[in-house]
C-alpha cells in the first residue's frame, strides 16, 4: 500500500479524535471565565472532559465527523491525482473503522454512499508547495456548524453597514447573533472580506486553519479581530446558547481582491469542536501535527 494512505489515515484519525491543543487551551481559558458550577461552566467542562476521553479512547470527539476538506501543497513533480487517490483510500478505511461517520448523501435522493466519497468529496484544494515538502491540512467540519455560516453583501442598509471595516464588524456581530447556539457555540469564526461568492466562503474556511494564538499581520485586521471577540461575547449567547460569557473563542479575518461592484463579507462558523490537523511529508517520512 502507498505509505501516503497510511499517513493520511493517521491524519484523519488524529483530526477526528484529538482536538488541536490550541483549541483545547482556549476552551480551558473560557471555562475559567465562567462561574464554577454554573450551567455555562458545566457545559464547557463537559466539552473539555469529552476531548480528554476521546483522545484517550481514540474515538471521535463528535459523532458528526463532518465533510472532509483538504488543503494540499504539492511539491513539483508530484502527481496531484495520486494524492487524491491516496486520500480517497484513506477516507474509505477511516469510515470502515469508525473514525468517520458516513456523511456523503445524494442531494436529492438522500442515499448515503456509505464511504464518505462522492462528487467533490473529499473536497481538495491543491496549490504548489514552496519547497519539496508535501503538506496536507485537513478540516473536518460538521453540518450544524456549516449551516450557521453566512454571507453578506455590502452596503447593507438594515445593518447600517457600509463598505469599510466598520461594515465588516457589523456583519460579523449580526451573524454571531443569528447563529445563537446552533453551531455548537462557542464558535471559531473564519471571515473573508472580498472575493466572489464562492471564493469568499472558501477564503473564510481557510482562515479556520490559523493557529488560535497567532496575530493578524495586518494591524487594522488584528484590531478588528480583538474587537469582534470582545463584542460578540457581549451578546451573552454563551456555550451551547444557554447564556454565558463565552460565545466565540476566536475570530480570524482575511481578505481577497474583489470586483469593484461586489463587496462580500463571508463567514465560516466552526463549532467549538474545530477539528483540523496537518500532515507533512518530507524526505519520504510522513508526520502528523
Amino acid at each position: 500500500m502507498d505509505p501516503l494512505v497510511n499517513w493520511a489515515l493517521e491524519l484523519i484519525r488524529k483530526t477526528s479524535t484529538d482536538l488541536s491543543p490550541d483549541v483545547e487551551r482556549w476552551l480551558r481559558r473560557a471555562r475559567e471565565e465562567e462561574a464554577e458550577g454554573g450551567t455555562a461552566w458545566n457545559v464547557l467542562d463537559a466539552m473539555i472532559r469529552n476531548v480528554e476521553m476521546s483522545r484517550e479512547a481514540g474515538t471521535p470527539i463528535c459523532q458528526d465527523t463532518g465533510l472532509t476538506t483538504f488543503f494540499v501543497q504539492v511539491p513539483r513533480g508530484t502527481d496531484p491525482e495520486a494524492i487524491r487517490e491516496a486520500l480517497q483510500q484513506a477516507i474509505r478505511l477511516a469510515t470502515q473503522e469508525g473514525s468517520l461517520r458516513p456523511n456523503s448523501v445524494h442531494p436529492i435522493t438522500g442515499k448515503n454512499t456509505g464511504d464518505n466519497l462522492g462528487v467533490d468529496l473529499p473536497h481538495i484544494e491543491f496549490e504548489p508547495s514552496p519547497d519539496d515538502g508535501l503538506v496536507i491540512d485537513l478540516l473536518l467540519k460538521g453540518g450544524g456548524s456549516e449551516n450557521t455560516g453566512a454571507q453578506y453583501r455590502l452596503p447593507d442598509a438594515g445593518l447600517k453597514a457600509g463598505r469599510d471595516l466598520e461594515g465588516v464588524y457589523r456583519c460579523v456581530v449580526d451573524a454571531v447573533h443569528h447563529a445563537q447556539g446552533h453551531g455548537c457555540a462557542p464558535g471559531i469564526l473564519g471571515v473573508c472580506i472580498g472575493g466572489d461568492r464562492a471564493g469568499g466562503y472558501a477564503g473564510a474556511k481557510r482562515q479556520l486553519l490559523r493557529p488560535l494564538d497567532d496575530t493578524n499581520p495586518d494591524p487594522a485586521l488584528a484590531e478588528l479581530e480583538e474587537r469582534l471577540i470582545r463584542d460578540c461575547n457581549r451578546l451573552g449567547v454563551g456555550p451551547m446558547g444557554f447564556g454565558g460569557r463565552t460565545t466565540v473563542l476566536a475570530v480570524k479575518v482575511g481578505w481577497k481582491h474583489r470586483h469593484p461592484a461586489s463587496f462580500f463579507v463571508s463567514i465560516a462558523y466552526s463549532c467549538w469542536a474545530d477539528r483540523h490537523r496537518r500532515l507533512e511529508v518530507r524526505n519520504g517520512v510522513g508526520k502528523v501535527f
Binding site: 463537559a46 469529552n50 463528535c62 455548537c184 463549532c271
Partner: peptide, 13 residues
C-alpha cells in the same frame, strides 16, 4: 432537554 453538542464520547459513556 438539551444535551451538549459535540460531546459525543462523553455522552456515549
Amino acid at each position: 432537554l438539551h444535551a451538549v453538542g459535540g460531546a459525543g464520547t462523553l455522552l456515549a459513556r
